[in-house]
Write a protein that binds this DNA or RNA. Structure first.
Lengths: 212, 212
DNA sequence: ACTGTTGCGGAAGACCCCTTCCACTTTAGG
DNA sequence: CCTAAAGTGGAAGGGGTCTTCCGCAACAGT
């Protein structure tokens, strides 16, 4: 019944997504929609028609990246060396803001209602839990490390990358170094207790129409 | 020759400063100026006449807090127990965003041109350097710790306090715990090198009329 | 080639924030 | 009390972003 979709419409949609990936990556997901439209070479109306709300565009743009993220976690969980896997994974996630500012924001924000995004995020977390369990069993990761410290680490290292400059990237790498050493099983002292994960994630909830 | 300053003008100025301390503390220094004026019970014009630029109001508002900060550093540097002093000072600074969101922003931003602010910040840093030196000499702080890791730690822990909620405050305390253990002298492995301080601070420069 | 439909782009309106301006009020000093 | 000067508040102007609307262009199907 419905006709074949128009070729130019499909092309435009993809151009918007490509532009969004670029712009969000450089300037974060709060960049003016008009800027995305300009970069895509389409009118604002076209952008809005395809993605009525900013969240829609964000979800469509970062679905693949979130899947990548979960896949990386899966690979890490399967690595024969639990400590190297743990360190490698943490470094990978923490460096995301060096490459993609927008995705870093997405990673540290709960997008309630964005099925794909949240499903992949959860898958990543499940894999990370496996990774953590193995590293603890091997005695290389401190026993009181919580998988829910991951968002904490993400927020911390993300906080350093205010702007994408070499100096801040170096600073971030150094911070990751500190944190990884703090995660090692050797010479640990008690830590302040973690907040209930439920509350923690609630505090990172998405707000339709907010800021950073 | 010049007359006595008007009493109501002085009172208004102080009401603005009090309101600014409140509002900035709750919502950060990028809050609408009109909100400050409203809370102070004065017109926008009055606010602007006293503090033509936002930076002027910020400087006037947080001068005392920055002096406190430097004083605290001085006290810590004089503490007989270098490790306790180091930990106490780090905890104090890192928890600032739990209490005062605006001041946390000020602490992690270079306000070029704000004499008072920068002078006190520098004094704080000088004292912190002394503190670090003593802790290293006592063998309790890792030798490769740099005083210029302080802004790094501030950015990291500050990144966690997106909103002032108990869950995030607990998360932040936990993160501070991790970082302090990473700073201890025991069981240290090499860290990625720190960026040149000059570049690091340049990346935190103030932008007249910016955002995050 | 023709046509009905789908999709397009930009203009207009609404909203928010900062800034400037000006008629009015309040104060200090005689 | 009276007056000149200082200070006040709100309204108007300008820039920026998001949203809605509508005449027009381009495409799919015959």
């Amino acid at each position: 019944m419905s006709r074949q979709p128009r070729a130019d419409a499909v092309r435009n949609r993809e151009r918007v997504l490509a532009a969004a990936a670029e712009v969000f990556g450089e300037s974060g997901i709060d960049v003016p929609m008009s800027e995305v439209a300009r970069r895509a070479g389409v009118g604002i109306a076209t952008l809005i028609r395809n993605f009525p709300a900013r969240a829609d565009l964000v979800e469509a743009t970062f679905g693949a990246a979130m899947t990548d993220y979960a896949d990386t976690a899966t690979r890490a969980a399967a690595d024969p060396d639990p400590w190297a896997a743990f360190c490698g994974f943490i470094e990978y996630v923490c460096r995301i803001p060096q490459r993609d500012r927008g995705f870093a924001q997405v990673l540290t924000t709960m997008f309630t209602g964005a099925e794909l995004l949240e499903a992949q995020r959860q898958r990543g977390l499940r894999e990370f839990i496996r990774l953590v369990r193995r590293a603890k069993a091997a005695g290389v990761l401190r026993a009181d490390f919580s998988p829910h410290d991951l968002p904490l680490i993400l927020l911390a290292t993300g906080g350093v990358m205010r702007t994408q400059t070499p100096a801040l990237a170096a600073a971030q790498d150094r911070l990751i170094g500190y944190l990884l050493q703090a995660c090692a099983a050797s010479n640990t002292k008690p830590l302040p207790g973690a907040p209930p994960p439920r509350d923690l994630y609630a505090a990172l909830e998405f707000r339709r129409g907010g800021q950073s």
